[in-house]
């Protein structure tokens, strides 16, 4: 147990350090922008106003509001202090809503969509990959190239194809939004039904994408394990093949947990874009509207939130992995 505490401590330290770096990058990068963001916003808001002094007045007000008149380091601490209190300032494009308000209303949608979709895709992909490795014949010649091909369809492409086939042509499921556009979110059967039917297409397109990549990886991992010495040895001790296959899949599956931890950042990227295609009211769509309307506090906050989500997921997976795989335990816990 002592070893585990050490492992946990080490991982936690990494988590904190990475988190700090992420926050700093999140703060610095937008500020390296060649153009003064406040000036460009002022220009946009001032619109046709040609009164120079009025424009200057607006500019000053914004400068104060965003604190760009302060030195960099002071700005940073202010940014951190506010961020801890969940205060990311006001949104430009959806003025006078606050950024944290916008994010609060979209983050739930993203988590509810992506977490189950990625996990289900991961699980199904692993099962299919394991089966493929076990059955081998036939699969390899026909299904593997198909699986490889499907695995290379980009997430947004799969989203568009699913949308067109099931939404536009077959009209099985609605094609955009998180719920019917004429509804106001509230707790009722009709609303929940609407949410579920809107959930289908984004969910399955992310699932299918995750399956492709996982299945191919799991297949080669399982083939590798099937040739391991312990398989032969267990067979010669009279253990049933079915039981041995169980060993193999467990051993092949465990490294896939790391695979999930490593790829979750990439997967989220694809899944966010899938959200945009379906106009799903999550962070992806929020980010898109922030980008198109140059809403710079909102972009900064969404990227930060996404980073934190990925960091937490990776951290949790690392911890779980260390706990369930004795190979890592032996190597890391000492």
């Amino acid at each position: 147990m002592k070893g585990y505490r050490k492992y946990f401590g080490k991982k936690l330290l990494w988590f904190v350090v990475t988190f700090i770096v992420a926050v700093i990058l999140n703060f610095i990068l937008p500020r390296l922008m060649p153009a003064d963001p406040v000036a460009s916003i002022t220009g946009k808001l001032a619109g046709g106003n040609s009164d120079a002094s009025a424009v200057a007045e607006i500019y000053k007000r914004y400068q104060k509001e965003f604190g760009t008149d302060l030195p960099m380091i002071q700005q940073f601490f202010r940014f951190c202090k506010n961020a801890i209190h969940g205060n990311f300032g006001l949104s430009f494009s959806q003025y006078p809503r606050s950024v944290s308000n916008i994010i609060a209303s979209s983050i739930g949608w993203t988590i509810a969509l992506q977490l189950p979709a990625i996990l289900v895709g991961w699980l199904l992909g692993n099962i299919l990959g394991a089966l493929a490795a076990y059955i081998r014949k036939g699969y390899d010649k026909v299904l593997l190239p198909i699986a490889l091909f499907l695995g290379n369809v980009p997430a947004f492409g799969m989203a568009v194809i699913m949308l067109v086939i099931f939404g536009v042509y077959l009209k099985i499921a609605p094609i955009s939004g998180g719920y019917a556009f004429d509804m106001i979110p509230h707790l009722s059967w009709n609303f929940i039904k609407s949410v579920i039917s809107h959930y289908q297409l984004p969910f399955w397109s992310i699932v299918i994408i995750s399956i492709g990549g996982q299945a191919v990886g799991m297949r080669s991992m399982s083939i590798y394990e099937l040739n391991a010495d312990y398989v032969k040895y267990s067979r010669f001790l009279g253990i049933k093949d079915r039981k041995i296959v169980g060993y193999v899949f467990r051993n092949a599956m465990l490294p896939q947990v790391t695979g999930l931890a490593m790829s979750i950042g990439t997967m989220i990227g694809g899944a966010l874009v899938a959200e945009i295609i379906f106009s799903y009211p999550g962070l992806g769509s929020t980010m898109y509207s922030a980008v198109t309307s140059a809403d710079y506090p909102l972009i900064s906050a969404t990227t930060l939130i996404i980073t934190i989500m990925v960091l937490v997921m990776t951290f949790l997976l690392d911890i779980i992995y260390g706990f369930i795989d004795p190979r890592v335990k032996a190597a890391q816990f000492e």
């Binding site: 010495d229 040895y233 190979r327």
Partner: peptide, 29 residues
Amino acid sequence: LGTEIAYIPQAAMNALNPTQKIIRFIEDV
């Protein structure tokens, strides 16, 4: 297998399932 004739493999290093406790393996056997 195991009761009449038993086998000790060449590479005992990898002969045991790395993620299984020894006693569980004995139970399976």
